[in-house]
Design a protein around this nucleic acid. Structure first.
Length: 263
DNA sequence: ATGGCCTGATCTTCAGGA
């Protein structure tokens, strides 16, 4: 069966609801991982998603963070948080949710930003990524096609930032962060590399400031890592940069993955 | 065509984003 899976950091699901709804209707994904909901679980627009044909499972706690999974091919075995997920200042933040959607299992993640190298939030980010590697290791061999999709807040290579010279000693590019992403490969996952709809490289994020989008000053930090059952079924993948255009856009664009699965 | 920040709460000012 053909299956379209996507991930999108929407930067407030409330503010973005009209655009998300329009995109669901035009792109017609079967499974969508959302990040940065910025609402609590009970404020998630479950009814609106249902009207669009999607079951949803959300995990949010108000102003910051928040993740969800939408599916129109079934939604079962929902797990919130990661095993061993670290807290920040005493709070285990809503940054991960997993579910089985028809033939695939997906994990929607919003990795901590890190703020500055050496900051407590940066240490937290590395610990969080370590927990993600552990969770991915457990899921990768569980049998189903499986993928971790979301805002990793890490640019895997220097090609994934518009100007590496501007990122010296910055978060998102440090060897420590990149090593944690590489560790996903060591536990049996590999990356689904999307194509760009325009320009040479498939950036997924462009800052709101300083005309970053029209100048294509972007970063590729929204990533998809899957086990062989998932990546082996991929027929296409692209970043839908059109969603970064116009009024009321998120600063991230959706990443779309098309699969052709046996069942 | 894109467009010189945006979002939500502590709410007219700020933290956080990356």
């Amino acid at each position: 069966m053909a299956l379209r899976v996507a991930t999108w950091n929407v930067n407030s699901v409330s503010t973005r609801l009209e655009r998300v709804a329009a995109w669901l209707e035009s792109a017609k994904p079967d499974v969508v991982c959302l990040q940065e909901l910025k609402v609590s679980t009970d404020e998630f627009p479950t009814a609106a998603m249902s009207e669009l044909g999607y079951e949803s499972a959300a995990h949010g706690r108000g102003r910051w963070n928040g993740v969800a999974i939408l599916s129109r091919v079934g939604l079962a075995d929902v797990v919130r948080d990661l095993p061993g997920q670290p807290d920040y200042e005493g709070v285990v933040e809503p940054r991960a949710i997993s579910a089985t959607c028809g033939p695939v299992r997906v994990c929607s993640v919003y990795v901590p930003n890190g703020r500055e190298v050496g900051h407590a939030h940066y240490v937290y980010k590395l610990r969080w990524l370590h927990a993600l590697v552990g969770a991915a290791a457990a899921e990768a061999g569980a049998g189903l096609p499986f993928a971790v999709l979301g805002d990793y807040n890490v640019a895997p290579t220097d090609d994934d930032v518009w100007d590496p010279a501007l990122f010296v000693d910055a978060t998102h590019v440090t060897p420590q962060e990149r090593a944690m992403v590489e560790a996903l490969r060591e536990v049996g996952l590999s990356e689904v590399m999307p194509r760009a709809l325009k320009h040479a490289w498939p950036f997924t994020f462009w800052d709101y400031r300083q005309l970053a989008f029209p100048k294509n000053n972007g970063m590729r930090i929204d990533l998809v890592f899957g086990n062989p059952g998932f990546t082996g079924a991929v027929t296409d993948s692209y970043v839908d940069r059109n969603e970064r255009k116009g009024a009321g856009a998120s600063d991230h664009a959706p990443v779309v993955v098309d699969l052709d699965l046996e069942s």
